[in-house]
């Protein structure tokens, strides 16, 4: 795969909808972004904003009644949308790997760690079980699991949460993927463990040139990790740009609201800022900006048409007709 100069992954106008009995849920509705080789993209949003579904869409793992209805997912130039299952299977876990949110749930409880790692190698490479075991052991070593030989023979319940997530990361690393999609992998962990894992993942990506999509609702996590950040709201991107610019001087009122809700950024004693109202139902979105009802800056025209994603400052896009330009230096 050398010689490909474009971005590792390019998502164009991705739409993933769920066709339920109650109506069509537009979980992902026109999301676009790209990631270069070795770069880290933070995909941020509240629960239900569609960030996880975006991750699953890339791997072709959206379960019915959901499916990708529109858009392109170009991985090294190859469009993954509507590829036959066998082609996707060959890419999954091999060239694009995924790490899930809850480490207590991602490993099969009745299979030993070595079984679960060896099968991941052998799904993509015709190597002997011994060679596969060797690779599994190396991968466990790389994520900092002590005495990997012994641990390979253990079952998932014999590991702590942090250790299980390391195992899951080791599994993701097994086949040296070009892209890793990490879906809130540290949310369920202690803060100290979270820090270690962040550090290690960042280091591994830098060493191997692996691109990374880090899906999270936690802005403080992406702050120190990502190069660029995409903020999602109600299935659409609200804002995207370089991580420092977006976090220091957000353009979109939603991003600003999110940042205001982080406790550490508030002065002690003053009430915690919060975004009023609730995320709108994805089944019946308003005509205009989906955030308008919760937005302090919204006016009549905000409710008339969905604002386009526009480049408001160089390299910085926002879906807002009244961005926070006054904050910009």
């Amino acid at each position: 795969m050398t010689g490909f100069a474009g971005p590792t992954l390019e998502v164009r106008d991705l739409k993933t909808h769920f066709f339920t009995r109650g109506g069509v849920v537009k979980a992902v509705d026109g999301v676009s972004f790209e990631i270069g080789k070795g770069r880290i993209l933070g995909l941020v949003g509240e629960s239900g904003s569609g960030k996880s579904i975006t991750g699953f869409s890339i791997l072709g793992l959206v379960d019915p009644p959901g499916r990708v209805v529109e858009g392109e997912i170009r991985f090294k130039g190859e469009n993954l949308v509507d590829q036959p299952e066998e082609r996707l299977r060959a890419i999954r876990g091999n060239r694009i790997a995924m790490i899930f949110q809850d480490p207590m749930m991602t490993l099969n409880p009745v299979l030993r760690i070595d079984t679960q790692m060896i099968e991941a190698v052998q799904a993509h490479h015709s190597v002997s079980a011994d060679d596969a075991r060797q690779r599994a052991r190396d991968a466990l070593g790389r994520v900092g699991i002590p005495s990997p030989d012994e641990r390979l023979k253990a079952y998932p319940h014999q590991f702590s949460g942090g250790m299980r997530q390391r195992v899951a990361i080791a599994i993701a690393l097994l086949n040296n993927p070009e892209l890793i999609i990490a879906d809130e992998p540290t949310t369920a962990l202690d803060v100290t463990i979270q820090g270690q894992i962040l550090y290690e993942v960042q280091k591994l990506c830098r060493e191997t040139g692996t691109s990374l999509i880090w899906i999270t609702h936690d802005l403080s996590v992406v702050a120190g990790l990502a190069d660029r950040i995409c903020v999602m709201y109600a299935g659409k991107l609200a804002e995207s740009g370089p991580v420092d610019d977006v976090l220091d001087r957000p353009l979109h009122p939603y991003t600003k609201g999110l940042l205001g809700s982080v406790p550490s950024r508030n002065r002690r004693g003053s009430p915690l800022a919060q975004i009023p109202g609730m995320t709108p139902s994805l089944m019946s979105l308003p005509d205009g900006c989906a955030f308008a009802d919760r937005c302090p800056r919204a006016q009549g025209d905000c409710r008339q048409a969905v604002p386009p994603m526009a480049e408001i400052l160089p390299g910085r896009l926002a879906r807002c007709i009244r961005p926070h330009l006054e904050d910009q230096a």
């Binding site: 876990g93 749930m105 991602t106 490993l107 799904a123």
Partner: peptide, 17 residues
């Protein structure tokens, strides 16, 4: 519906496996 099944699929295992 379990996460570990989705994770197994994300590893690129065949349906049969």
């Amino acid at each position: 519906l379990q996460d570990y099944i989705k994770f197994a699929r994300a590893k690129g295992l065949s349906h049969r496996r």
